[in-house]
Amino acid sequence: MKESRAEGGRVEGGRVEGSRAEGGRVEGGRVERSRAEGSRVNTLAETSLLAGRNLRRFLRSPQLIADSVMFPLILLFVMLLVFGELVGEVTRGAYIDRLAPVIVLFSAAYGAVGTGVGFFTDLRGGIVDRFRAMDIGRLSVLTGRVAGDLVRVLLVAAVTTAVAHLAGFRFTQGPQAVAGFFAVVLLFAWIFLWPALVAAMSASSEQAVSGALNTPVTLLLFLSSGFVPAEQFPGWLQPVVRANPLSLAGDALVGLSQGGPVAVPVLFTFAWAVAATAIFVPLAVRLYRRR
């Protein structure tokens, strides 16, 4: 054990401490580089390491996978069975064309609940404190969490889309539109990720985190034009339904997969993302710094 320690010291002396104390000698070239650039490179590396950790956790938790993939899919088929014919007649289109995008978006928003609960668990378990006491970028923990969860959203969206394909959902607008489709899904997920982090840092229990996130996500789903066209809602509710980011992003996805207006709904979705960024990113950063 003694020997292994001594060896460990050598490893470190050559590189890790080296880059700090004896940097001039060992890897002078790298250290000489401007500090700002260096820290940006580090932040990027740290973010991807921490994102990788989050993804690994997700892929190793069958329960989490089942929940985040199965629930939206069950919803997809139930809705298809219950409303399929009814709504299809009214909208004169295959219901799945409209439903699949909404379910993909719901899976993204629902994933934010997982983000919140996962981050809360990290905060409670002390691993965030460990990261914070290490000399890594102050915000890498947040950026790593967001980056990892965006990739997770993309994975879940791909699976959901593939299953929807079996139910008749098709991309008809070419490969660029497919890329745009998933880009909108990410943009939409972004709107929910940051509030989820804020909830995780302000809540006192895991139940409080999922409670605070589940309700708005579910409400947003049912008050959207996804299951039922906006015109079918009572008049006073229609503005809410139309302004719902899930309706807007849903319109964009329908446009990108089936054809129809894209620019306007994307722009509105983007506006939602900007608003969420303006409010929740500074809030999340402040809460994180203050911990």
Partner: peptide
């Protein structure tokens, strides 16, 4: 710290590699 602040889903080895990589090994 007072709590075992490691990732309980990852293996012991994966934990140590993660921390090492974060510390620029």
């Amino acid at each position: 710290g007072q709590f075992a602040a490691v990732d309980d889903v990852l293996t012991g080895r994966q934990n140590l590699v993660l921390f090492g990589r974060l510390l620029k090994l």
